[in-house]
Amino acid sequence: MTVADALMLALGAIAVGSGVFVVTSTHLVRAGFYLVVSLGAIAGLYLVLGAELVAWVQILVYVGAVVVLMLFAVMLTRAPIGPSKDLDRPALPAALIGGGVGLGLTVLLVDAFRWTEFELPPPGTGRRVGEQIFGAWVLPFEVLSILLLAALVGAIVLSRPDIGARPDPNAGPEPEGPPPGPVDESEEVVARLQRIAERQAAAQQRVRDQRAAAERAEQAELDVVEGELVEEARQTDPLADVVLRAHEARPKPGGPPPEPKRELPGAPEREED
C-alpha cells in the first residue's frame, strides 16, 4: 500500500461515488455537477497514473466543455430546476444488466491482476505524447480533425432547421399563416434573430465602453491631483457598466440600425496589444 494506492483509492471512491449520484440524482442540473466531480476525480487518477496531458485535456475538454455543453442543453430544453419525478424508468432491468456488467468486469479484472504490484513509469510529459501523436499517430489524428469538423458542421445543420429548408413547391403562393409542424417556427426564428442582434449590439457596446474606461483610467492616472475623479473611476465596475449600457443599447423596433463593425477604429488596435 503506497501513497499512490491511497490516492487512487480515494480518487476512485470519489469518482464512483459521484458517478452513483450522476445516475440516480433526480435533479438534472445536479447530475451534471456530479458528473463534473466524477470526471475531475478521474482526471486525478490520470495524474496519479502518470498521464499528465490526458489529465489536463480531461479537465479542459470534459469538465470545461462537455459538461458545460450539457448544462446548456439542460437549460435549452427547459428542464425543471428542481427535482423531477419522471426522469427514471423501472430500475430492475437496468440494475440487473448494470450490476452484471460491473460484477463481471470487476471479477474479470480482479482475477486478472490480483494484488500485483506494478512499477509506475515516469510521468509522461506533453512533449513525449506530442512526438507520438505527430509521429506514429498523425494519420488518425488528422482523421479525427476531419471528424471534428464534420461533427461541427453536423451539429450546426442539425440545430438550425432553416438550413437547407426549401419552400415547398406544392404549397402555392401563400406564405402567410403559421407554418405546419408542432413548433411555431416563425416565432422561434424571430426570437433567435433578436437574440443575435442583442449579442452583436452588446459586443459593440462592450468594446466602446472598454475603450472609454481605458481612456478614463489614463486620464485618471494623469490627473492624480483630481482625487475625486480618481476615486470615482476606481469605484466604477466596468462589467456592471457594460451590462447597464448593453441594456440601454438594445435596438428599438423602428429605431436606427446598430452601427456596423467597421466603424469601430479601435478593434484592430486591441489585437496588437
Binding site: M1, T2, M8, L11, A15, V16, T106, L109, W115, F118
Partner: peptide, 13 residues
C-alpha cells in the same frame, strides 16, 4: 502500485 484499483474503479464506472 496496485493496478487493480484503477481497473476496478473503471469497471464500476
Amino acid at each position: 502500485m496496485h493496478v487493480v484499483i484503477p481497473y476496478v474503479v473503471a469497471a464500476l464506472l
